[in-house]
Design a protein around this nucleic acid. Structure first.
Lengths: 360, 360
DNA sequence: ATAGTCCTTTGCAGCGCTGCAATCGGAACT
DNA sequence: AGTTCCGATTGCAGCGCTGCAAAGGACTAT
């Protein structure tokens, strides 16, 4: 008389043993059938399957987990769920994982370093997932190295692999350079950047700033350091606030490279709110290609990372890591990106996104 | 020699038994300490805790799950993760669940009836969660009744409880009525509605249509049936397309009640794209109060459901259901909502959302 | 007819924990 | 000193499944 207490009166859940009894075989054989293991005669299989159907048997995943020491779950850790970029990424990750037989747990950390650190550390929740895909915000590069070494890990975004985990992302410097070069190509000369984060956890931002400088250099333009505006996050509100500060200057910029589409959206909000025009007065380019950007007014030029590619690659690598009992050398994986020019820089309706517009 | 195979050479994970041995107590006592159970002497507790720290013990959740028959997880099922409304809702549900000791699994179904049906059915994944919060889209009212009766269930959105699960939502008819009454109050008389779904799974939409009619009736206005436009989903693209059709008419509307903020966003996109003004030519009101609406140009008037309230209530009820071994009678729970008038109806900057604008 | 081979099926033990009920030991009481 | 009582601690058995290795059975080769 032990183990879990069943709801009073409720029927006991059917077990492997019950099926075995009805089918007249051993429990182990039922297990073999259920898992498609080994060689099982067609006749035996049929018998067992009939019994399974008759009893409405479903394997107890909890018991299987304990016996195998695997949970069949992976966890995806993002800073914010309601940030469209992460939502869109998750949207892609879930089916990719499901296809490989994994369930997806989701965690949001609010970019909190401690919370993120706990997750990659050796906490008790570790048993709940076989591997982790994390998009760190609060964790600096070095924090990533202090972690449960047995945790198969794939990192998204702008960290570098320290050789013990894989890193999947786009080439941020190249992408940022393209974005700013595009602004230069349309004739802008006083270009601002919104989103810099010149501190250890701001590596993502710093790579974009690097691209910002590279594009200037390539065009032989000087960088006005005072036009590089830092923000704590990549939100609309940050973009709106920073843009206001820029417009308050005696010499406002004629173009802005925003480190996310949300920042761009906030910036545009401020510009239009002051009666100025985008892109005539200030051209704007964002980053991430979230859906909003295709519908905002004006539509937002942006850098489009291959999100499905990121999701697929991240899941594939992670599952590979989980499968191989051994430690696997960490790799840097680059996924393609594209510059999408929309109204906020070209001023033209249509263009590359024409197909998106349902206008008759 | 059985059970799970450990990574070659890797140390075996510490178990309760190891701790017990080092502390010189029985495993059961260690368990008691870990779980804060029963009475344990301070001395014993201290001894055990020291041993736990020394060995770096962490309880094996998988084993606990099997022994207790509970997974400590709840699953939240939404149609689309990248729909801001659901993302924002999840953002609120996760911490609420975490606070009560539950992990959150997330599933998206693309509104697919079969997929949703599988989830509430008695599949094998059932063991992975103790309860479910679902926002059904593909499932009609009657489908909800065909389900694993042992699954504690809370339904969000616009279904009615059949008495075996709880339902949490706002009063959609009242909210819709308010929205349309607001349009009438600002002087509009030819009001369209975008988003109707006159078929079994479209209950959400139908309630809004009901409110649309109610507001007209209350104001003594006739309803022009041809101004009620159906859409398959509540997306930007649906809003944009429907709006285009409305504007193509000889007698276009002077206001539109959109069944979601995304629909509103799409509609506005179309209107502005044609050189018309919002709200001067067409006033727009949406539904859901997603963040985008506070930053779009113009900002979007909307119905604001108390999302945190929904999340909290849903989790509380679910956990209560899980806790009580008995079946609990299902309840209808209404959460407050608010009409938020923004520029897309008032034409005025600021207003109720002024605080959101960081303009100096 | 006997030994050898190969493939299917089985038994055992245990994954690490918890529910239950019994036990133990000291304090309080007679 | 003996008994009762009560709280702290323990032992047992088992949750339902799988890894491993051995047993069993049919068939072929000698």
């Amino acid at each position: 008389m032990a183990g879990n207490k069943l709801r009073e009166g409720a029927l006991r859940e059917t077990t492997l043993r019950d099926v075995a009894e009805l089918a007249g075989v051993s429990p182990r054989t039922v297990s073999n059938v259920v898992n498609g293991y080994a060689k099982v005669t067609d006749a035996t299989r049929a018998k067992v399957e009939r019994a399974i159907a008759e009893l409405g048997y479903r394997p107890n995943v909890l018991a299987r987990n304990l016996a195998t020491g695997r949970s069949g779950q992976i966890v995806v850790v993002v800073p914010y769920l309601d940030t469209p970029y992460f939502a869109e990424l998750l949207q892609a990750i879930i089916p990719a994982a499901r296809k490989l037989g994994y369930n997806v747990l989701i965690d949001q950390t609010d970019g909190d370093r401690e919370h993120e650190g706990e997750l990659i550390g050796r906490g008790s929740r570790r048993f709940l997932f076989d591997g982790m895909i994390i998009s760190p915000l609060g964790l600096a590069q070095e924090d990533l190295s202090v972690r449960d070494p047995d945790l198969p890990l794939v990192v998204l975004g702008e960290r570098r692999s320290d050789g013990t985990f894989d890193h999947v992302g786009i080439d941020d410097v190249a992408a940022s350079t393209e974005a700013v070069s595009h602004l230069i190509a349309i004739g802008r000369r006083r270009i601002a950047a919104i989103g810099d984060q010149p501190y250890p956890t701001g590596e993502a931002a710093q790579l974009r700033t690097k691209g910002f400088r590279a594009a200037h250099e390539a065009a032989g333009l000087p960088v006005d350091e005072s036009l590089i505006i830092g923000t704590a996050r990549f939100n609309r509100i940050d973009g709106a606030t920073a843009m206001a500060a820029l417009l308050d200057r005696a010499d406002p910029p004629d173009a802005v490279f925003c480190y996310s589409d949300l920042v761009a959206s906030g910036a545009i909000h401020t510009i239009l709110g002051r009666g100025l025009r985008v892109p005539e007065d200030v051209a704007i380019i964002g980053y991430d290609d979230i859906e909003d950007g295709r519908y905002s007014q004006p539509t937002i030029s942006t850098i489009q990372p291959d999100k499905k590619g990121i999701a697929q690659l991240a899941v594939d690598r992670l599952v590979m890591r989980i499968g191989s009992g051994q430690p696997v050398a960490g790799v840097e994986l680059k996924v393609p990106h594209k510059l999408i020019a929309r109204e906020s820089t070209t001023g033209q309706k249509g263009g590359p996104t024409a197909g998106v517009h349902p206008l008759p």
